[in-house]
Design a protein around this nucleic acid. Structure first.
Lengths: 163, 163
DNA sequence: CGTTATTAGTTAACATATAAACTATCTCTT
DNA sequence: AAGAGATAGTTTATATGTTAACTAATAACG
């Protein structure tokens, strides 16, 4: 009966719409990506969220980045930012300095050690991504990205870097 | 310069391949889906993983389901299954019964209360999925699912129901 | 049979995630 | 300038997730 997806079925009691098929496939796809990438980061002593944090801090270096800003960039709660940064600070991968103009704020920056670690990860990264996306050719990968971004565009994303 | 994706940029120091675009878009798409669906489940007192657990238990009802089986189905570690089931058991949504033939095993099943809760969630589910996938028409949704499933097919998935 | 292996599940230690309540600081209004 | 309110960050409580170390029960075989 089913033309595609013999590997698993959706034997439930609510309707099998294209929307459902799409959501389920994205959730499974993300799971597969996470399972492949997580050991890659672990080889450098990083968790995936820690890698994300360092990546964002590297991209924003030069700016005065508050912890709230980081939470918005990463779609992560502010308490979680606090805890994650504490660990990264302990590992000397990031620094926090109090803003003397507004002593509530703390500016976060990546250290030289953090940047150096990031470069090591990046050297392996393209091979990892290639491995994850085996199964799709470049044209299909572009098509996939196009569709996902079109979906994302419909979700007005309130928290973003430009104010 | 960039033809697509004005919303965000990948200003880093490793190459911007189609594979990277695809992976980033899937990760972001999953994030968007999670942010939309999580409050939906919360309205019924469930977390997303708890909903997944109940869904699988419902699908497998009639079979004698061990906790290891659940871990494999959900791609979740066995200790995590223990903890999650303890909470669901406390809420009377699932039951655990020791297998008298092999007293190491415990068969897990969804309770009537669990099934009834699941039905309530399902009633709202199609509207939620529709909302998440606004932005794509049905043809695009099918295309997206097709591409994701093709990607998934290349990841030989060792842990599955048929032994 | 009895020692050894393996298997199912749990516990412990830790990282990530949230919401809610708290502290410290600044801003705004009068 | 004083008090009300807002803002940045932390702490607390709880849920999810991992790996490693443990318990209890079964299986293997000598």
């Amino acid at each position: 009966m089913s033309k595609e997806s013999k590997t698993w079925d959706l034997a439930d009691e609510f309707p099998d719409t294209p929307a459902r098929r799409a959501v389920v496939s994205v959730v499974r796809g993300f799971g597969a990506i996470a399972r492949r990438m997580s050991p890659h980061y672990a080889r450098f002593g990083l968790t995936p969220p820690q890698f994300q944090m360092l990546t964002v801090l590297n991209r924003l270096s030069g700016e005065q980045v508050t912890q709230r800003r980081l939470g918005r960039e990463l779609y992560v709660s502010f308490p979680n930012v606090t805890v994650m940064l504490s660990r990264l600070e302990q590992a000397n991968l990031i620094e926090r300095k109090i803003n003397v103009v507004d002593r509530r704020e703390r500016f976060v920056s990546i250290t030289r050690k953090g940047r150096s670690l990031l470069r090591k990860v990046w050297k392996e990264q393209p091979a990892q991504l290639e491995c994850v996306m085996t199964g799709l050719d470049d044209s299909e990968r572009r098509q996939l990205a196009r569709l996902m971004n079109k979906m994302l565009a419909s979700h007005t994303r309130p928290s973003n870097e430009e104010v």
